[in-house]
Amino acid sequence: MYSTETLKRFKNPEFVGDMENPDAVGEIGNFKCGDVMKVYLKIKDDRIEDIKFETYGCVAAIASTDMMCELVKGKTLDEAYEMSNQEIVNGLKDLPPVKVHCSILGTRSLRDAIDKYREGISEK
């Protein structure tokens, strides 16, 4: 079943919560697949200065989003955008095969936030 690391993160996620005046908000998923992830970014000099998340979903979904946040905090937007879901899986010391899609949703929610940030910039 779940690794100790996954359970630890699920029980005590560090990055959970919403954010006042975020620079970007990403959201992915729906009720039907069982996971909805929302990611808030504070961006300074093209780097992720702060990151928060809210997740509707299972143990793996909550742990994956928290792991994603830790991995990308402080990274440039390009670096963060390039991060693969495998890095989340590795960070969690593995996920059951059926739960790997949770880590994919983690990277997709982050990319959604970065996309929206960049769209916002280009509009300005």
């Binding site: 029980k11 069982g34 299972c58 143990v59």
Partner: peptide, 22 residues
Amino acid sequence: EGEAINGLLDDYGICGSTGSAC
């Protein structure tokens, strides 16, 4: 979501189950 509910209950020493897709 139900698996998460059971995941936290487990931490409190409580065993239940769920019909969630997850």
